[in-house]
């Protein structure tokens, strides 16, 4: 396991291009691997990151597809923190319908945020709703 004071962090500007998204995702996941997080943690962080950055580009930057999204991350031996901020007007996450209700099960959209909430330890939006911050806590005995 990495030492307690081991930490990696960074701030990256990402365009809506698969190669750039993959590059920063790989960077974060490599750090989880280096610090000995279990494979299940990598699955959870990859899933949440993918959903969050997809939402930022698909919804936040619908009117400005060439703008960059800011990804800020920190990985330490006990916690992963990732913030994703777009340049859009933001939104109110409480307005998103519950996709697990029977009447919504056959709708092909609206699951990203609930998946992020399910796999992360804590999820918060800023007041304007254009910056998502998520925290993932290393599971007990997760090495």
């Amino acid at each position: 396991m990495a030492s307690p004071d081991d930490k990696a962090s960074g701030v990256v500007q990402v365009h809506d291009e698969r190669a750039q998204i993959q590059e920063v995702e790989d960077l974060i996941l490599a750090e989880l691997g280096r610090q000995g997080y279990p494979q299940a943690s990598e699955f959870a962080v990859r899933l949440a990151f993918e959903e969050a950055i997809t939402n930022a580009f698909e919804h936040g930057h619908r009117e400005q597809p060439h703008e960059t999204v800011t990804v800020e991350y920190e990985v330490n031996p006990s916690t992963v923190r990732i913030s994703i901020e777009d340049k859009g007007p933001g939104f109110d996450p409480s307005t998103i319908a519950d996709p697990t209700l029977d009447e919504n099960l056959d709708k092909p959209f609206g699951r990203g945020i609930m998946l992020i909430r399910s796999f992360m330890s804590e999820v918060a939006y800023n007041d304007s709703g254009n910056r998502l911050t998520m925290r993932y806590d290393r599971p007990p005995n997760g090495s």
């Binding site: 899933l47 993918e50 997809t54 056959d106 092909p108 959209f109 699951r111």
Partner: peptide, 16 residues
Amino acid sequence: DHLSSAALGALITINN
């Protein structure tokens, strides 16, 4: 190994 909610959405559309 991995799929996104957009992939789930595509599966739902296929199912429909």
